[in-house]
Amino acid sequence: MFAFLVFVFHVQNSGLTPLFGSERLSSLLAPLVFGVELFFALSGFVIVGTLARASRPWFFLIDRLTRIYPVLWVGVLTVVALSLLSGREAPATYQGWTLALYTLANMAGLPNLIPVPLFLAPAWTLSYELCFYILGSIYLVARRRWAMNLFPLLLILSLPIINTHPRTLFFLSGILVATRYGRFLRIPGIEKMPALALLVFLWSWSSAWTYYIEALEPPSYTLVGWMADPHILYVVIAFASATLFLDALVRGAGWESTFLRSQVALYFGTISYSFYLWHPVVMALVKAGLKGTGLLAIAGSLSQLLLFVAALPPSIVVSHASQRWLERDLTHFIRSKLRREANVSARPVRAEAT
C-alpha cells in the first residue's frame, strides 16, 4: 500500500499536465510521497522482529542484506545499461573508472552516506536502512556475547542520522510498535481508526515538511532546527499518528486491517519492495513510449491518468518477476550458501588423535 502511494506521487510529479488541469488536485496528491516514511516505520518494525529471531548477529545481517541487495543490484545495472544505450543523462555522463566506481557504490547502497550520485532514485532510502542494520548487529553482539543491553546507547547513536535526515525519524515509530511501547500513544476512540491516523499523519508531516524545505536553511536544516519553532508541533503530531497508524494495523483494528489481510493486499505486500524500486524505471520507459507515439499530446489534461493506466500493469508484472526470481530464488541461494559457510567457520576445530 505504501509503495502504491509513492507510485501515485511519481505519476503526479511526472512533469505532465496536471489531471484535468487542476493544480489544486496536484497539491492534494503531493503528500503521498510520504509513503516512504511509512516504509521506514514498517522497516523499524521488521528489524526488531528479525533481531528477535536471529540466532547469530551474522545471520541477522545475512537476512537483511540479502533482502535488499539482489533487487538493488539488478535495478542499478538496468538503469546504467538503459542510460548507456540512450546516451543521455546520468549515469551515461560518467565514463571509465568513475562510472565503474559510482556503479559499485550504488550497488552497495552507499549514496547519501558518501558523496556519489544516486542512479536508482528510490534506492536513497536503503542507505539509511543499512545504518540501522549495522546498529542492530551491534545490539545482537552485545546482547548475545556479553549479556549487555545497548539499546539506549544505540538509540542515542542513531540520533545524528535522524537529526540530519529527519525522514528517518519514523524508523522509531516501527520500533515503538514492535516493542509494544506504541500502546502509550493510543488515543481512546481513535486507536481503532487507522485511516484517520493516516490522514492526520499525511496532513501534519506535509505541513512540517513544507516549512522544513521552504523556510529552514543550514545549519537549521536539521530536526534540531525545528525545535525552537512552533512547527515542531507538526512533527510531534506526525510521529504520534504514524505510530498510532502502524500500531492499529498490527493489532488488526479497523476495516483497513481487514482489507490488508485480503489476498489482493497480501499479494501487493509481497511484491511491494520490488514494486518500490522498479516502478520509476518502468514508468520512465512507458512515458517515453507514450511521448514517442504522440499519445501524451492527444491525452492533454488526461495525460497523467494515461500514464497511470499504462505504467501500472507493466510495473506489477516486472515486480512480480523480480520478487520471484530475485527476492525469492536468488536470495534463498545466497542465504543458504552464506549460512552454510558461516556454520562451517563456526564449527570448533578438534585435535587429531595421536
Rank of each mutant, 00 (worst) to 15 (best):
L72C: 04
L150W: 15
P166R: 02
L185S: 03
M193T: 07
S173Y: 03
L172W: 14
G292C: 12
R64C: 09
V46R: 03
P122R: 02
L118S: 03
I175D: 03
W278S: 02
F20K: 01
L101A: 13
S322H: 05
M227V: 13
P18S: 01
L28Y: 15
S86Y: 05
A41C: 05
P314D: 10
G35M: 05
D329N: 06
A92E: 09
H320S: 11
T93M: 14
L157Y: 09
F40A: 08
W58M: 06
R251C: 09
F132N: 02
S241K: 00
E352D: 10
G292S: 11
V8S: 05
P313H: 10
M283G: 08
P194G: 08
M107Q: 08
G292A: 10
G109V: 07
I213V: 15
T17Q: 12
P70C: 01
T93A: 15
L135T: 13
N163P: 08
V236C: 04
R328G: 00
P91E: 04
I213Q: 12
L19V: 14
Y133F: 13
I237S: 02
V344D: 11
G21R: 08
F171S: 02
T66W: 09
L198R: 01
Y221M: 08
A54E: 03
G49F: 13
P194V: 06
F60N: 00
R251N: 01
E89V: 05
L140F: 11
G75C: 05
T78V: 13
S303K: 03
A121F: 13
A123Y: 11
T293Q: 10
L246K: 06
A30F: 13
L42N: 00
L172H: 05
A81D: 01
M148Q: 15
I334T: 10
T293W: 14
A253H: 14
S158N: 07
L29P: 04
S272M: 04
M193I: 08
F275P: 01
V250E: 12
L244M: 14
A121T: 13
L202M: 07
R67V: 08
S86N: 08
F119G: 03
A90M: 14
H332C: 01
Y212H: 06
R53L: 05
H332L: 10
V236M: 03
A299S: 07
P314R: 09
R261M: 10
P348W: 06
